[in-house]
C-alpha cells in the first residue's frame, strides 16, 4: 500500500521537496526541545543573563526542598484540572452529538449552532467570562441573585476555569462525534434492532464501541488542549490565582497549571529559566506518556468493524 503510488524516481528531488519541512522541524522543534532539556541543568536568569551548570539540581528541587510543595501542588492541580476538562468535554459532547444526530426537525441548525464555538479562541472565551462572572458588574450574579466570588475565591474560581475550558472546546469534540456518528455502518444497529435491543443497549453495546477510534483521538487532543490551550483562559481569567486553602493548597494559586507555572517561573518575577525548564521536562514526560498510549492504540486499532 505504501509504495503503490511511488511512480517517480530520483535520488535528489524527494529530499529537496522534504527539506523545507525538515529544516523548520529540526530548527524550531527538535533543537529547542533538546535545548529546553539542557536548560533544565543550568541555573539561568533571563534578565541577569547569568548561567551556571548545576546538573540535576533543578529537577531534584522539584521534589525536595523549599520549592517542592508549590510544584507538587501544581502537579496535582494539573492532573485534576485535566481529568475534569477531558472527562466533561467528552461526556457532554458525545451526549449532545448523539442527540443532534437524531432524525428530528431542525437537526442541521442545532448542529451548526453547537459546532461554531470551535472558531472561538480561549482568550475570547476568557474575556467574555471575565465580564459575565465579574462579582460586581457581571450578569450571572445579577440575574441569579447569587453573590459568589467567581474570580477570587478558590473553589468557585477553580470550577469556573474548568467550566470555561470545557465550554470553549465542546464544538471541536462535537464535530468529530457528529462526523463519526454519520458514517457509522448501518448493519450492526439494524441487527441489534431485530434482536430487540433497547435504546440504551444499542448505544452502549453497538454505537459506543464503534465510536472508540474517535473517542481515543479526542482523548488525546483534549488532553493536549487542557495542558496547553487552557493557558490563555487561566492567564486572562485568574492569573493562576487565587491561593487555595491550607495546608496543602496554599503554596500556589489554585488555577495554576503546570504550563502556567512554567511561564510564571521562566518569564514572570523570578525568571528562573532553569527551574522552569525542569518543570517543562516533567510536562514533556506527561505528554510523552499520553502519546505512548495514543500510539499503542493506533497500533492495535480498536476497531469493531462488522
Amino acid at each position: 500500500m505504501k509504495e503503490k503510488n511511488a511512480v517517480f524516481t530520483s535520488r535528489i528531488v524527494p529530499y529537496i521537496y522534504l527539506s523545507p519541512t525538515l529544516i523548520i522541524l529540526i530548527v524550531f522543534l527538535f533543537y529547542p526541545a533538546w535545548k529546553s532539556i539542557i536548560l533544565s541543568m543550568y541555573r539561568s536568569n533571563l534578565f541577569l543573563g547569568t548561567r551556571k551548570f548545576i546538573g540535576l539540581e533543578n529537577l531534584k528541587s522539584l521534589f525536595t526542598g523549599p520549592l517542592a510543595p508549590g510544584f507538587l501542588q501544581v502537579l496535582a492541580q494539573t492532573v485534576i484540572f485535566s481529568i475534569l476538562v477531558v472527562a466533561l468535554s467528552l461526556f457532554i459532547s458525545l451526549f449532545l452529538a448523539v442527540q443532534a444526530s437524531k432524525d428530528i426537525r431542525g437537526a442541521r441548525i442545532y448542529r451548526v449552532l453547537l459546532i461554531w464555538p470551535f472558531a472561538l479562541s480561549p482568550a475570547i472565551a476568557a474575556t467574555i467570562a471575565l465580564f459575565m462572572f465579574n462579582p460586581e458588574v457581571g450578569i450571572v450574579n445579577a440575574l441569579t441573585g447569587l453573590s459568589i466570588r467567581w474570580l477570587d475565591s478558590p473553589v468557585p474560581t477553580f470550577f469556573l476555569t474548568v467550566g470555561i475550558a470545557v465550554w470553549k472546546n465542546l464544538g471541536y469534540s462535537i464535530v468529530f462525534y457528529l462526523a463519526a456518528l454519520q458514517s457509522l455502518p448501518k448493519s450492526p444497529l439494524e441487527a441489534a434492532n431485530i434482536d430487540g435491543a433497547t435504546m440504551m443497549q444499542r448505544f452502549w453495546l453497538v454505537t459506543y464501541p464503534l465510536l472508540s477510534p474517535t473517542t481515543f483521538f479526542l482523548l488525546f487532543t483534549n488532553l493536549i488542549y487542557s495542558f496547553f490551550d487552557s493557558f490563555a483562559i487561566i492567564d486572562m481569567l485568574t492569573r493562576g490565582g487565587p491561593v487555595g486553602p491550607g495546608p496543602l493548597l496554599d503554596n500556589e494559586g489554585i488555577t495554576t497549571t503546570l504550563m502556567y507555572k512554567v511561564y510564571l517561573d521562566g518569564f514572570g518575577g523570578s525568571s528562573n529559566m532553569g527551574f522552569a525548564a525542569a518543570e517543562g521536562v516533567v510536562l514533556m514526560v506527561l505528554v510523552g506518556i499520553a502519546a505512548l498510549f495514543q500510539f499503542r492504540f493506533l497500533a492495535k486499532r480498536v476497531h469493531y468493524e462488522g
Binding site: 524550531f28 522543534l29 533543537y31 529547542p32 526541545a33 533538546w34 535545548k35 529546553s36 532539556i37 539542557i38 536548560l39 493536549i224 495542558f227 496547553f228 493557558f231 504550563m259 512554567v262 511561564y263 521562566g266 529559566m273 522552569a276 525548564a277 517543562g280 510536562l283 514533556m284 505528554v287
Partner: peptide
C-alpha cells in the same frame, strides 16, 4: 506542541 518547548 510548541508550548512545551517555549524556554528553548
Amino acid at each position: 506542541p510548541t508550548e512545551m518547548l517555549i524556554l528553548g
